[in-house]
Amino acid sequence: MHELGIVFHIIRSVETVAQENQLSEVAAVTLEIGEVSTVIPSYLTDCWKWACGRTELLKGCILRVETVPAVTYCEACGRTYGTVEYGKTCPCCGSGQTYLIQGNEVNIKEIEAC
């Protein structure tokens, strides 16, 4: 269960931030999840509810997910295009010499806490 492992890592990171800033209650965590990060937000939310309930700091904490669109760059023609729609082959010139420039993020953007 991939998402559960990720949730444990998020919780550990948030706990560290809370400790550093002397926070005792975290009300919301906002994530940035790339479209091709292999993380499924709905699974993540389910795991989140379960895992948060087991900690004092994050009890009832809301998880917000912001999606980052996946964009691929083509080395052959220098253009960029939407990864989800066209995949690895450039729709402009047909080259396979492409790489992802954004869209695999799994970031903690911010937290709301006191």
């Binding site: 948030v14 209650e25 994530l31 903690i108 937290i111």
Partner: peptide
């Protein structure tokens, strides 16, 4: 509830802790 919580920018990859 408004005002009780402050927003803290974290800007950190979820994998940073493992890394």
């Amino acid at each position: 509830m408004e005002g009780k919580y402050k927003v803290l920018e974290v800007k950190q990859s979820v994998f940073a802790d493992n890394d």
